[in-house]
């Protein structure tokens, strides 16, 4: 085997790696935001909207990401939606991931006792304040492992973007492989690249989980309030 092809194409491979990282982060951010919105709407909306969202979730879950991406990128123009490969890739990842994140958030929301929410309502907090101040801070600790887990899974879906010519790691390395016939070397390099990304993600997740559980078990955090003597002054 001859790994010199990799060093010869180091520049391209590096930018492919960064592109993968970027699409991953962008896709996860979109999916998290959309997922949270879906979960919140599911909690509060009427039966019609809830039903529509349920359908959306089922359709996305029941179809392969590759097919969704094709439909978005190649089918989009027939619906007046022409997207660049990058935009289609990000939106595709966002849509695909949103339903899984929505389910995770929904589990989180239902884990907070209804009584805490009623207490907040009786104190005049708005539903938005209740979500942001009462529900999310508590449920985050519970759902973080699931969020990190699906973030890793979504990262492993990013190679699909190569099929619509997004110049990410898989696109670059398979290109190099085809050009130089160094198939094995480039595929091994791919494995290493995704391993590094997954490892980064899991480290970050572990760190966050530690922080979050300390936050709830109240080891690190003293309440962010003034000391009694400060207010007495």
């Amino acid at each position: 085997m001859d790994f010199s092809v990799l060093t010869e194409h180091a520049g391209e491979i590096g930018s492919g790696f960064l592109m993968t990282l970027w699409t991953w982060i962008g896709g996860v951010a979109l999916a998290l935001a959309a997922g949270l919105v879906i979960a919140v709407i599911q909690l509060s909306a009427g039966p019609w909207i809830r039903g529509a969202l349920r359908c959306y979730i089922e359709v996305i879950r029941a179809t392969p990401f590759l097919v969704q991406l094709f439909l978005l990128y190649y089918g989009g123009p027939s619906f007046g939606l022409s997207l660049s490969p990058m935009a289609a890739g990000l939106i595709g990842l966002g849509l695909y991931g949103s339903v899984y994140f929505a389910e995770i958030f929904r589990t989180g929301f239902t884990s907070i006792p209804q009584g805490q929410i009623e207490a907040a309502q009786m104190l005049g907090l708005t539903s938005r304040q209740i979500v942001c101040r009462v529900q999310i801070p508590q449920m985050l600790v519970l759902i973080l492992p699931a969020l990190v887990n699906f973030t890793t899974i979504l990262g492993k879906e990013t190679p699909v973007l190569s099929i619509i010519t997004v110049p990410e790691l898989t696109f670059v390395l398979t290109g190099v492989g085809a050009e130089t016939f160094a198939y094995v070397e480039t595929l091994l390099a791919l494995c290493v690249g995704y391993f590094i990304l997954a490892e980064l993600c899991s480290r970050l997740g572990q760190w966050l989980e530690r922080r979050a559980s300390l936050y709830l078990t109240q080891g690190v955090r003293t309440p962010r309030t003034l000391k009694p003597q400060e207010t007495a002054a």
Binding site: E118, A119, L216
Partner: peptide, 23 residues
Amino acid sequence: FQQFNLWPHMSVAENVMEALIRG
């Protein structure tokens, strides 16, 4: 309420302050 329904992620004072600050 029977079950108190305090918010466990906030200190005692923060529980009392929350609605004063937000509402």
